[in-house]
Simulated scan of single mutants.
Amino acid sequence: MRRALTGSKNTSSTTVSPESTEARIASSALRLFATKGFAASGIREIASAAGITTASLYHYMGTKEDLLVHLMRTSLERFVTVGRQSLEGLTSPAECLAALVRIHVATEGLHPLMSIVNDSEVRSLIGASKDAVMRVRDEYEALWSQTIKSGVEQGIFHVAEPSLARLALLEMCNGVAHWYVAEERLALGEVSDHFADMALALVDAQSDGKRLAVSTLGMRPASFEIGLVQRIYSEYK
């Protein structure tokens, strides 16, 4: 009987045991989808990269689209989980926005292949498959929408089009996966704090007439959000 990969929590070589066949398949597919694109990646290529035959590959998965949907849904579900947990205990919209930016930047920096696939391959999905992925993505983006809306309603954020602000901020954070290299000058925590400051500037965050920044909010260190991302992803091993 075919044992479908869909439904498994193993999605990439960075988050699952490399000895597992499912892990090798997911890791190989993820790398190919991120570097070549879903349409240009063939079933034979995925099987070869995973070190198995094409016939064996079908024992672990349904279609190539099933594999893409699985990778994207599980990755986005982690985004939702880590996003919600980053907001726990925070009441200020400015702190909430900074926390969301930090976890998004951390995820893009630590798991760039997953992030690139999430950002670029929705276009490859149709029908029910696309709807399933979009529901999870919408759930994550709602955290941002609610935070920005709350900031505007409380007079802390000053932005005429909150929905455009959300799109601009997400696009800004998504780009990290394409250029961040851990060995470069800035550590990931520093990058996330700089991005959080830019996000607060974009929504014109103010309190008592003074502009808000990470340094003025008295926030916990960025290592908290980085550790949160690492912990949530490690739970999928």
Rank of each mutant, 00 (worst) to 15 (best):
M1L: 07
R2W: 12
T6G: 04
T6D: 00
N10M: 10
S12I: 08
S12P: 08
S12F: 00
S13W: 14
V16F: 12
S17V: 09
P18F: 10
E19N: 13
E19K: 13
T21R: 14
T21D: 09
A23D: 03
R24C: 03
A26C: 03
L30N: 03
L32Y: 04
A34E: 01
T35A: 07
F38C: 08
F38T: 06
F38M: 09
G42Q: 14
G42E: 14
R44H: 12
A47L: 01
A49E: 12
A49S: 11
G51C: 07
T53D: 12
A55I: 02
S56W: 02
S56N: 15
H59A: 05
H59D: 08
M61I: 15
K64A: 06
K64S: 08
K64E: 06
E65M: 09
D66I: 12
L71K: 02
L71G: 00
R73Y: 00
T74L: 09
F79G: 13
V80E: 09
V82M: 05
V82L: 06
R84G: 13
Q85E: 14
E88Y: 05
T91W: 05
A94M: 01
E95C: 13
L97H: 03
A98F: 04
A98G: 05
A99E: 07
H104D: 09
A106Q: 08
E108R: 14
L110K: 11
H111C: 01
P112F: 00
L113H: 09
M114T: 11
M114G: 10
M114H: 14
M114S: 12
S115R: 02
S115L: 00
S115E: 00
I116W: 02
I116T: 06
V117N: 01
N118P: 01
D119W: 04
S120T: 13
V122R: 15
S124P: 06
S124A: 15
G127T: 09
A128T: 15
A132K: 14
M134Y: 05
M134T: 14
R135I: 03
E139F: 01
Y140H: 05
A142S: 11
W144I: 07
W144E: 06
S145G: 04
I148S: 02
K149D: 15
K149Q: 11
V152M: 01
Q154F: 01
I156W: 01
H158E: 04
H158C: 03
V159G: 02
A160I: 08
E161Q: 08
P162A: 11
L167T: 12
A168N: 10
A168F: 11
A168W: 07
A168V: 08
L169M: 14
C173V: 05
N174P: 04
V176K: 05
A177P: 05
A177V: 06
H178G: 00
E184I: 06
E184R: 15
E184N: 13
L186Q: 11
G189Q: 11
E190N: 12
V191R: 04
S192P: 08
S192T: 07
S192K: 07
D193E: 14
H194N: 10
F195E: 08
A196L: 10
A196W: 09
A199K: 02
A201E: 13
A201H: 13
V203E: 04
V203F: 03
D204C: 03
A205W: 02
Q206V: 05
R211F: 10
A213Y: 11
L217C: 13
L217Q: 09
M219G: 06
S223D: 04
I226N: 09
Q230S: 15
Q230G: 06
E235P: 07
Y236I: 10
K237R: 14
K237P: 09
